[in-house]
Design a protein around this nucleic acid. Structure first.
Length: 221
DNA sequence: ACATGATCATGC
DNA sequence: GCATGATCATGT
């Protein structure tokens, strides 16, 4: 069921806009959990299935043949994002030679199909509605801001300042833990060049940035 | 009220 | 542990 071109993917995404999650899940005979506490990726997996992405794939993008990454994003009643958006894990070792142009962050964000979904916890998961899809590519200005943040954050990693990193750094992109829990460890490099155990970190888009993307494509005010 | 740091599920 | 998909929930 994988879409053969961009138009087909977009048409499929537009065809599910307005449906509730229970309507879509029942059409596909997919069980719906009571909430997302133990199924945080459920909405994303459902939309992947429906749109024909290869679930569980290790591919760089969800639709590699189209050069498109799929992201669901939870929004409030005003269309504002309720959560940050995970992009990719940060390379804490073996990162020499990685520059913005060949980074995973740039590749994944080169073209994104955003699917807004109502995310307010007061709305039962089954009753949350799917919004209109947004096919986005970063503007020159947006890519520049992403690049500057990425370069600043990568400098911390490469220069052995990994223990100084926190989520306050970065204007539109931030680094936060991305693991099973606070005991999850990976290898990193400290200020003396020694290998240390440290929390895995991921690049996340701040809500202010994704809000800008959603607003950019909003119709009728 | 909200962002940061922590956490959940799954496959290999 | 890493990569996929993310949201939870506590501290400030």
């Amino acid at each position: 069921m994988r879409p053969k071109n961009e138009q087909e993917l977009l048409a499929r995404a537009e065809s599910i806009a307005g449906l509730t999650l229970s309507e879509l899940a029942s059409q596909w005979h997919i069980a719906i959990p009571p909430n997302l506490k133990r199924d945080k990726g459920w909405v994303g997996m459902l939309i992947e299935t429906v749109l024909g992405a290869t679930a569980g794939s290790k591919a760089e993008q969800d639709f590699n043949h189209l050069g498109i990454e799929l992201k669901t994003i939870p929004i409030n009643s005003k269309g504002y994002p309720l959560e940050t958006t995970f992009v990719s894990l940060a390379p804490l070792t073996q990162n020499s030679g990685i520059i913005w142009e060949n980074s995973h962050v740039r590749h994944k964000l080169a073209k994104v199909l955003w699917i807004p979904v109502e995310g307010m916890r007061q709305i039962p998961l089954a009753e949350r509605r799917i919004g209109c899809p947004i096919l986005w590519q970063p503007s020159a200005d947006q890519e520049q801001r992403l690049r500057l943040d990425w370069e600043e954050l990568m400098d911390y990693i490469v220069l052995g300042k990994i223990e100084e990193i926190n989520a306050h750094l970065g204007e539109v992109l931030q680094l936060r833990p991305k693991g099973a829990n606070s005991r999850s460890l990976t290898k990193g490099i400290d200020k003396n060049g020694q290998i240390i155990n440290t929390l895995p970190l991921g690049f996340y888009l701040r809500k202010q940035f994704t809000s800008e993307i959603l607003q950019q494509f909003m119709q009728n005010g």
